[in-house]
């Protein structure tokens, strides 16, 4: 977590969690993602950066088939999760999304109690045998979401009553409560103030121990702070993908350099 020594950041070679091959995404006639090939490593934070409308969120949403909910959206190519094609006809997107959790741009807790927010996932997936089990899962998830101490005395209060940063951490806790393997985050800090952002970033760094985390962000500083790998998207193309240190200090592609130095985007 030190911006000044990006080069020194150790990147071990980890197992590949998600492999995307020749992925194309269309919105009707609009070709939103073109020929994207990317390997996302396990127990690593991978950041997607790029100007608005470059397709990074679209690509992120195709990793857990959230794009299925959009009628006109069509995905081609292969996305493999642990070697299995997630767009295979036999794959149930619901089961996939239990494995690949998602945190959204705007904190979106359910208008229910804090406890029920976190317990909802485990309940529908049958992860808890009894109430005590469920209590334990909820506490563990809230601790991982780094929000347990703030809410432990008011678990029955509505989740919508928390502050923005707390809500987002609650949403992260809710996502990890279902024991996913991959956590997708779509600009999780864009609606938060700097202090809340710092808390969430710290949390993302901790989550790396257990999950493969993919984060879309508009803030290059944030990408530099939290990620080990960075992918730069531009106009639907994956321009450059590599270790964060290398992308920010020594980009290969001139477009990447223009973007991170602020000349485009």
């Amino acid at each position: 977590m030190n911006d000044m020594r990006l080069i020194d950041r150790a990147v071990d070679m980890k197992d590949i969690k998600i492999a995307a091959r020749d992925v194309q995404v269309y919105y009707g006639d609009n070709h939103a993602i073109k020929d994207v090939n990317v390997d996302i490593a396990d127990k690593t934070v991978t950041a997607f950066i790029g100007p608005s409308g470059c397709g990074k969120s679209t690509f992120l949403r195709s990793l857990n088939r959230m794009n299925d909910t959009i009628d006109i959206c069509r995905v081609e190519g292969n996305i493999l999760l642990d070697g299995e094609d997630i767009y295979d006809k036999q794959v149930d997107p619901v089961q996939l999304r239990a494995k690949v959790g998602m945190v959204f741009q705007k904190p979106n807790p359910f208008p229910k109690s804090i406890y029920d927010n976190v317990a909802y996932g485990p309940r529908i997936h049958g992860l808890a045998k009894n109430k005590a089990d469920l209590d334990e899962i909820v506490e563990k998830a809230l601790r991982r979401g780094a929000i347990w101490d703030e809410v432990k005395d008011r678990l029955d209060k509505p989740g919508t009553g928390l502050s923005g940063g707390q809500q987002q951490r609650l949403c992260i806790a809710r996502a990890v409560a279902t024991e996913p393997e991959v956590l997708l985050m779509d600009e999780p800090c864009s609606a938060l103030d700097p202090i809340a952002t710092a808390q969430v970033e710290e949390l993302i760094d901790e989550l790396r121990e257990n999950y493969s985390v993919v984060i879309v962000t508009h803030s290059m500083q944030q990408a530099a702070r939290v990620s080990q790998k960075t992918a730069f998207f531009h106009l639907g193309n994956l321009v450059e993908y590599g270790e964060t240190g290398q992308i920010f200090t020594n980009p290969v592609d001139p477009r990447t350099e223009s973007y991170i130095t602020g000349r485009i985007g």
Binding site: A98, M102, N108, Y120, G121, I124, C171, R174, T178
Partner: peptide, 26 residues
């Protein structure tokens, strides 16, 4: 708001669960 549907789908609720557990009560 669609964010409620996204939230439910994002943690692996089926479409019907998302509708009946979250959208319909609201």
């Amino acid at each position: 708001p669609p964010s409620i549907r996204d939230a439910a789908l994002g943690i692996g609720a089926s479409k019907m669960q998302a509708v009946f557990h979250h959208v319909l009560p609201l």
